[in-house]
């Protein structure tokens, strides 16, 4: 912490010793003020606007708008998609992190880079990839369609796009954690006679549980909030393939501001809940990380 050993508030000359890393009062308050002002302008203000806009006609109207069948369908679809995508990425994420952190193999660096791909590619492109794969001019699309399987403009396409976009969250969170923990805990369990599954279940999983939960939270927030990729593959069929973010856009374009902001409120709430949970976890998690370092 930057503490001044001797305060410089009296006559200007009493500033005898100052900790090397501390700045002058002016610089400190200036920096803090700048940061707070920035946060207020770009984060707090828009969020507050969303809530006030949604509540403009009172809470009664707010609830009525949310119970609109199409909006309700959008909420249900979003929950469904997240409910499929998040568990899938939970499993994929653990598997990928496990492989990268605990084994040496050819192409490991390539796989690590590949996992980051969804982060670096624009979400619109992520959506287009699936249009190219399953569209009417692709190889797979007509074949699947002739067997009665609809991918694009239907729930499977939305799930696929969401899985793609949210893939890195769990893996990214776990890889550094698992690398730091190394393999000796697992070796200890094996040497005591534990099977592979027992080792995973009783040793590996408890060691990564906080990081895992954190990754799942982020993954879930993104899965529910994803717009770009889902927008490309969904087809915007009302009451059928619209997720919450898409529904917000439609309502907004129809000048139905209260409804648009009401749905937006739900998404914003999700973000807030995620943030709060994340902070709580980080507090807990940091203790565990510290403990594991002391260990």
């Amino acid at each position: 912490m930057a503490h001044e050993a001797v305060s410089n508030t009296g006559s200007g000359n009493t500033e005898l010793v100052r900790v090397a890393t501390s700045e002058s009062r002016l610089a400190r308050y200036g920096l803090i003020g700048l940061a707070l002002g920035f946060v207020a302008l770009f984060l707090v203000l828009p969020l507050a606007a969303v809530f006030t806009e949604a509540m403009r006609n009172g809470p009664g109207e707010f609830l009525t708008v949310l119970s609109d069948p199409e909006t309700f369908a959008a909420i249900r679809l979003t929950l469904l998609v997240a409910g499929i995508a998040v568990p899938l990425n939970l499993v994929f994420g653990i598997a990928a992190a496990w492989a990268i952190a605990k084994f040496e193999f050819r192409g490991k660096a390539f796989l690590t880079t590949l996992i980051d791909l969804p982060f670096s590619v624009s979400p619109v492109i992520s959506g287009l990839v699936f249009v190219l794969l399953f569209g009417s001019h692709s190889l797979a699309g007509p074949f699947l369609q002739s067997h009665g399987i609809q991918i694009l403009f239907a729930v499977p396409g939305i799930v696929l796009a969401t899985v793609f976009v949210t893939f890195p969250f769990v893996a990214r969170e776990l890889i550094p954690l698992m690398q730091e923990q190394g393999t000796s805990d697992e070796e200890a369990a094996l040497s005591l006679g534990a099977s592979g599954w027992q080792t995973f279940w009783y040793v590996t999983l408890p060691n990564i549980k906080w990081g895992l939960l954190y990754g799942v939270l982020l993954c879930n927030a993104r899965a529910m909030g994803e717009f770009g990729a889902v927008s490309v593959v969904s087809g915007h069929i009302r009451g059928l393939t619209n997720t919450m973010p898409l529904q917000v856009e439609i309502l907004y374009n129809e000048y139905n501001f209260v409804a648009a902001f009401a749905v937006a409120t739900l998404l914003a709430l999700l973000a807030l809940v995620t943030l709060v949970l994340k902070s709580l976890l980080e507090m807990k998690y940091s203790e565990q990380i510290a403990a594991s370092r002391r260990h």
């Binding site: 000796s184 805990d185 070796e187 200890a188 369990a189 040497s191 009783y202 040793v203 408890p206 060691n207 565990q288 403990a291 594991s292 260990h295």
Partner: peptide, 12 residues
């Protein structure tokens, strides 16, 4: 029975 250099106790 194997005792590891950094003990590898199960921390949880």
């Amino acid at each position: 029975g194997f005792v590891f250099q950094h003990y590898a106790l199960f921390r949880h």
